[in-house]
Amino acid sequence: MTQDTDWRYAMTRYVKGMPHTRATGLEVIKASKGDVTMRLPWQPWFAGDLSRGLVHGGVITMVLDTLCTGTVLCGLGRPEICPTLDLRIDHYRPARVGHAMVANAVIVNVTGSIATVEGTLWQVNAPEKTIARAVGSFARLPPEMTPHNFERLLCGRPTHSHNTESHV
């Protein structure tokens, strides 16, 4: 079932469905199973240090948290509620004000109890320069903790379904 899932559509529903990420303007560039890329267009209130022209580290945390969580949602056999256990962020260099940020994450390991995701963030003006890296651990819960309609809530109506049974 999830083989045909339009993950970009699902991830867009995910970021637009959360008031916080909707307010920040975060958008989904690419998404396939366990591999997601998001982009945060620049907004002046993302600044964290006006005197030096730097982006607030918290904006980077917000993007990587959202991205890694989304990557777990579309990285398992079928979507599960997986609470974030922890997220570690290494800041390689400061992000400069005025430029959009892009981040990619991949699911790197899944056990019966933990899913692990790694993410990388950069700015559009210097894609070769990593701004920050993240590693997140997510708890896998018993199946009954995921509502039965969760997959439909997340993925919505498949955009490219053949509707062969629509007359039934």
């Binding site: 959360m18 916080h20 307010a23 918290g58």
Partner: peptide, 24 residues
């Protein structure tokens, strides 16, 4: 505030907003 919410089903504060707050 409404725009601090991540999971609208619970509703819960967005983990990233929580992280940004603690970092600040």
């Amino acid at each position: 505030r409404r725009d601090m919410i991540g999971n609208p089903l619970l509703p819960a504060i967005h983990g990233g907003a929580m992280g940004a707050f603690m970092e600040t």
